[in-house]
Amino acid sequence: MKLVPLADRVVLKPIVAEETTKSGIVLPDKAKEKPQQAEVIAVGPGGIVDGKEVVMNVKVGDRVIYSKYAGTEVKLDNEEFIIVRQNDIVAKVED
């Protein structure tokens, strides 16, 4: 199956956070923070949303940081994805 976002939505695959700290301490699941960094998997076409023209500023393969509690979590083929609106993406991560 394939997720195809509509309008100004973007499908993200969260980048899993480290399970140990830099000093070597292993973190239990409850202590882990929800990841806010993700890879863009699919991008909607943009267009007119709420009466305004929306141009998509991200593309497939970009690494982004998104709002902490944004989006809809979806599990498909045993993989977890988050579907967010483009305005929930706060930054691109560039090397």
Rank of each mutant, 00 (worst) to 15 (best):
G46P: 13
G46Q: 11
I48F: 02
D50F: 07
D50W: 05
G51W: 01
G51T: 00
K52A: 06
E53K: 07
V54I: 15
V54P: 06
V55E: 03
M56S: 04
M56D: 01
V58N: 02
V58C: 06
V58E: 00
K59Y: 03
V60F: 02
V60T: 15
G61N: 08
G61Q: 12
D62H: 07
D62E: 10
V64T: 09
V64W: 05
I65R: 13
I65G: 07
K68I: 03
K68F: 09
K68E: 14
Y69F: 15
A70I: 10
A70W: 07
G71Y: 09
G71F: 06
G71E: 10
G71D: 09
T72F: 10
T72N: 14
T72R: 14
T72H: 08
E73K: 15
E73P: 14
V74T: 13
K75P: 04
K75S: 12
K75W: 03
K75T: 14
L76I: 14
D77F: 08
D77P: 06
D77Y: 12
D77G: 10
N78L: 08
N78G: 09
N78C: 08
E79C: 05
E79H: 15
E80T: 13
I82W: 00
I82D: 04
I83D: 01
I83E: 00
